[in-house]
Amino acid sequence: MSSQEIVFVVLGIVGLGAAVRLVTARNVVHAALYLVVSLAMVGGTYLVLAAEFVAFVQVLIYVGAIVVLLLFSLMLTRAPIGREALDNQQRGISALVALGILAGLAFLIQDAFRDARIEPDATPTGAVGVSIFQNFVLPFELVSVLLLAALIGAVVLARKDLP
């Protein structure tokens, strides 16, 4: 097991553990903090996979922006504490479904990629930028318009004096 793998496994276990705690936590604020941990670990795996720009964006946007947004909305809405308040009646079947999906994916992964190896290649941020602005200019512009629309939409939806 290479050193990269060891780091990855550690990150992965912490991330998965945080994710599991996220979906079982009885306090919504704790859940949000577990989400931070989980997302940060995912960002770490990007670093191990030598995708540094994606890792930074992950930390900036997810941990920095999205989680803060989630915390704000938790603050603005009443957030009761306790399992019954946060979970619905179909925990059992949900767990079954989730395990079923996991089993299916695991089977497929085993079947298709058992011997595949990654040799992470450093991808400088400049290369990502060049790729975005050479090959993906149109999608990039579209995404920016989408963001703008979402921004305006969110403002319109959430403001108090709806026309």
Binding site: L16, V23, V48, I101, I109, F113
Partner: peptide
């Protein structure tokens, strides 16, 4: 060097946990 199945298992695990959360949580 990283074995790809490791990464994919991690991702599959995250996905399944996410599915469980979407199905079982009441709080939006």
């Amino acid at each position: 060097m990283i074995r790809l199945p490791l990464v994919l298992f991690f991702s599959a695990g995250l996905f399944s946990v996410g599915v469980y959360g979407v199905l079982a949580r009441r709080n939006a």
